[in-house]
Amino acid sequence: MRISVISTLTLLATSLLPAQGPGSKDSSPLPLQGKRLPEVSAFNEAGEKIQLQELLKGRHAVIVFGCLT
């Protein structure tokens, strides 16, 4: 089975956001759990606009959100 892991660059707000570490994580589920993947667009690394549903269709995928700065 193929797994696609995608890091999603969304906010990039600040380098001062706390790093992940013990005690700082909340593993509680978000309301989206159990629902259909939202119909939403994003940009791939080449700067092309893509539909997330199309990109992930037919395989397990992991999406991880993060801030880089």
């Binding site: 707000a13 909340d26 978000l30 759990q33 629902k35 269709k57 395989r59 397990h60």
Partner: peptide, 19 residues
């Protein structure tokens, strides 16, 4: 900001973790 999601091949959100 640091959430993660596991998506099924059928497009269902199996796991939606806040952190």
């Amino acid at each position: 900001n640091n959430s993660e999601f596991v998506i099924s091949p059928e497009g269902k959100v199996l796991i939606a973790r806040a952190w």
